[in-house]
Design a protein around this nucleic acid. Structure first.
Length: 414
RNA sequence: GCCCCCAUCGACUAGCGGUCCAGGUCGCGGCCCUUUCAAGGCCGUCGCACGGGUUCGAAUCCCGUUGGGGGCACCA
């Protein structure tokens, strides 16, 4: 039988890091097995639904390059089917009415167990299973009823989900058995924790895919990083393309224990991906990011600045602060006495050609004349021109800025 | 409280009884390079939670302790 998996977000907010990681594992498994990856929206709790959350989740998946094979389905659409099954279960004597709701009669003795694809055998004593509400008094099915039924109807072969669902599994297994359907294989993947080992939350930093995107993380890098959270193909390989990830992914190598989200490592990996891009492509990515963030800066200048920053910044979001001086005025400031700055201005005033190479020679000559070491001499010039102690290469920056602006800033500082 | 699960450097992990006085990556420290910041190069630091077994032999298997996580809704 061909593999079919699904991700099942509830539309209650932005897609969370843990949620995409689970989606990613589903997707990788499906692609690895040449199976299908479905998206199902679990929206039976209408009261908690957030406007636009569905589209938001789909956008996040698409941004990461996770494609789905059929139009997304909605749990609420199967309300009638669920009710019908519940009534049948009542007729069969395995469910009963209780204050307007329908409850499923869980077995009282023995155990319910399954072989989890990532954790091995898991067993629950049936006496710990409460009789479960299948259909609420208002007629809406509950999650623990609708979810397994949809898995059955959709022909889901592998239920790959977060470990918070482990304790739901014995309940769902009993329901599926009661309707006489075949059980899927279950795989419970570990949770993603914050840097202190506690549940990932706002205080750890960005927790939504949209936030990560806004900070300038590059989708392929994030994908790679997320895949390595709780999974590793071997002990050596860390940088893997989408295709390599698909080719090597397996449930057996998914770790059963929770892992911490390490922003430092993500930053490093993002830098690795960004630096590896051909310059043109890097410029495209940078430009697209800035437009997405509503910067209306000149395209040609952005493209020209791209090579100056590619090796310097790990996240696209650093660009405005790092190279913004090319696009807007800076506050005039001096570091020490203005002598070098004034001398630099004079040296550049008539310089031809106004290229990085020529600028470097001219400025080095200035330092030589003044008896300054590069470290001492270039810093005041950098601060005058860029408004910051940290910047892209000075000479290239000056060339890009142009003579007029450069001289104006040097004069203002001197 | 009850139920389930997990346990290798600070972090992500490799390891599925001998090839491990434990390997890779991030981070961290040092040095080199250097116009700042990065990047890069070299070197280094740090770990099998603890206690019992099993075995000729255990990071690897079993039991317990401790610690951590998840769950106990007419939420998903």
């Amino acid at each position: 039988m061909s593999v079919r998996v699904r991700m099942a977000p509830s539309p209650t907010g932005a897609l969370h890091i843990g949620g995409v990681r689970t989606a990613l594992f589903n997707w990788l498994y499906a692609r690895n097995k040449s199976g299908e990856f479905l998206v199902r929206i679990e929206n039976t709790d209408t009261s908690r639904e957030v406007e636009g959350a569905v589209q938001h989740a789909l956008d996040s998946l698409a941004w990461l390059g996770l494609d789905w094979d059929k139009p997304p389905t909605f749990q609420l659409d199967r309300l009638d089917d669920c009710r019908r099954v519940a009534e049948q279960l009542v007729a069969d004597g395995v469910a009963y009415e209780d204050e307007g709701a329908i409850r499923f009669r869980m077995p009282d003795e023995g155990t319910t167990s399954w072989v989890d694809a990532v954790r091995g055998e898991i067993s629950f004593p049936n006496e710990s299973l409460e009789d479960l509400v299948l259909v609420r008094a208002d007629g809406r099915p509950t999650y623990n009823f609708a979810s397994p039924m949809e898995d059955v109807w959709d022909g889901i072969t592998h239920v790959i989900r977060g470990e918070d669902h482990v304790s739901n599994t014995p309940k769902q297994i009993n329901i599926i058995r009661a309707v006489g359907a075949e059980l899927p294989i279950y795989a419970h993947v570990p949770n993603v924790m914050g840097s202190d080992g506690k549940k990932l939350s706002k205080r750890h930093g960005a927790t939504g895919v949209d936030e990560l995107r806004a900070q300038g993380y590059y989708a392929p890098a994030l994908l790679n990083f997320l895949a390595l959270l709780g999974w590793a193909p071997d002990g050596e390989t860390t940088i893997m393309s989408r295709d390599a990830l698909v080719e090597r992914f397996s449930l057996e190598h998914v770790s059963p224990s929770p892992s911490q989200f390490d922003y430092d490592k993500l930053d490093w990996m993002n830098g690795v991906y960004l630096r590896a891009l051909p310059v043109d492509e890097y410029a495209d990515v940078l430009l697209a990011y800035l437009r997405e963030q509503d910067y209306d800066w000149d395209e040609q200048l952005i493209r020209a600045a791209a090579p100056l920053v590619q090796e310097k910044i790990a996240k696209l979001g650093e660009f405005p602060a790092f190279a913004g001086f090319l696009f807007h005025d800076v506050e005039a400031s001096v570091d020490g006495d203005g002598a070098v700055v004034a001398a630099a201005r004079d040296a550049l005033a008539e310089l031809e050609p106004f290229t990085a190479e020529a600028i470097e020679s001219a400025l080095r000559a200035v330092l030589e004349t003044l008896g300054l070491k590069p470290r001492q001499g270039f810093q005041p010039i950098r601060i005058a021109v860029t408004g910051s102690k940290i910047s892209p290469g000075l000479f290239e920056s000056i060339e890009l800025l142009g003579r007029e602006t450069t001289l104006a800033r040097l004069s203002a500082a001197a």
